[in-house]
Design a protein around this nucleic acid. Structure first.
Lengths: 164, 164
DNA sequence: CCGTGGTTGTTGAACTGTCAACCAAACTGT
DNA sequence: ACAGTTTGGTTGACAGTTCAACAACCACGG
């Protein structure tokens, strides 16, 4: 944006080429995530959010994480996570335990059933990711995609973190 | 789950490197879209879905599209679009008219108010896209991102590509 | 020790999206 | 002409998300 132009348009618009790329990105990402969500749901009964919860827990020490850490990992709001975990607890996939060091805290851990469900779900999900993303691109394209989005992610989480 | 999980399955897992890229992509895209959604909502009161509806209509002949075309453009379900359009109609942003050629059809058109709202919203949204995506990457990175996701999109839509 | 302010997590209401059922109009084949 | 099928769009119930308010707890300075 220019400093002192009182012109009608102080905004720097996207070039035609940039707009094409932006729309490809938005449209492609939306369709990709929708397809993955749909296939995971059909094949395993899990939503991608539930799946991600199980993945994070499976990688944590004692397969346990504080609610806040889990929320940060997933970039979900606290309340959203509370609701998700309550539903998963009802299904027996996870359990909540009070946190010893901090009485405010809640430790979320995955149950044996949760582990089984994850192990059963992972193969088909990985296959979906390969089918619709990894194997569709050249290794160089896929690596470039990952690198670019890592830059975007770090910029969003490092720099001026918006309110909320 | 980690890639060196005992592979009982015959599934081809992601390599460690692929997994890093996949997670960067998923995490970066999720945070990016969340940030854009949040900023657009704060600055203009529109959701990104409503914004996209207005964009598509603004580009169509007579600023009018059939419901099904709009739904396909946005990759939204019919019922979702019906709900969205009903809400936007209540806000006076769009209007629905019966379709002459096909009595089943409904033409959705944007009102003058809808146009004004879009014109007012576009600059800040474009700026958000620049701030969090376009200007964070090199032009080459951004172009590669767009190209890769265009490939993904075409693969998912069966190669049938209507220009967005 | 008390109070103030920040953090952690939950709750319930309002909103948005999903899914299946549905109606009406258009095509299809006989 | 007409039953059967397909397409276009809507509806209502349900599931998931957001938002603001809240309760409980920590941490730090009088």
């Amino acid at each position: 944006m220019t400093t002192d132009t009182p012109a009608v348009q102080t905004v720097e618009w996207l070039t035609a080429e940039q707009q094409v790329h932006w729309r490809s990105f938005r449209g492609g990402a939306a369709r990709l995530f929708a397809a993955l969500e749909h296939e995971l749901e059909q094949q395993t009964g899990l939503s991608t959010h539930e799946y991600e919860v199980l993945v994070r827990l499976s990688e944590a020490p004692d397969r346990t994480l504080r609610m806040a850490q889990l929320a940060d990992n997933l970039a979900h709001s606290r309340s959203r996570l509370t609701h998700t975990i309550r539903r998963m607890e009802e299904q027996g996939l996870v359990a909540r335990l009070p946190c010893v060091e901090d009485a405010r805290g809640v430790n979320c851990t995955m149950t044996e059933k949760g582990w089984q469900v994850l192990v059963a779900a992972a193969p088909s999900h990985v296959q979906s990711v390969r089918d619709h993303l990894v194997d569709v691109l050249t290794p160089e394209q896929f690596a470039a995609l990952g690198d670019a989005m890592e830059t975007v992610r770090q910029h969003l989480t490092g720099g001026a973190c918006h309110v909320e």
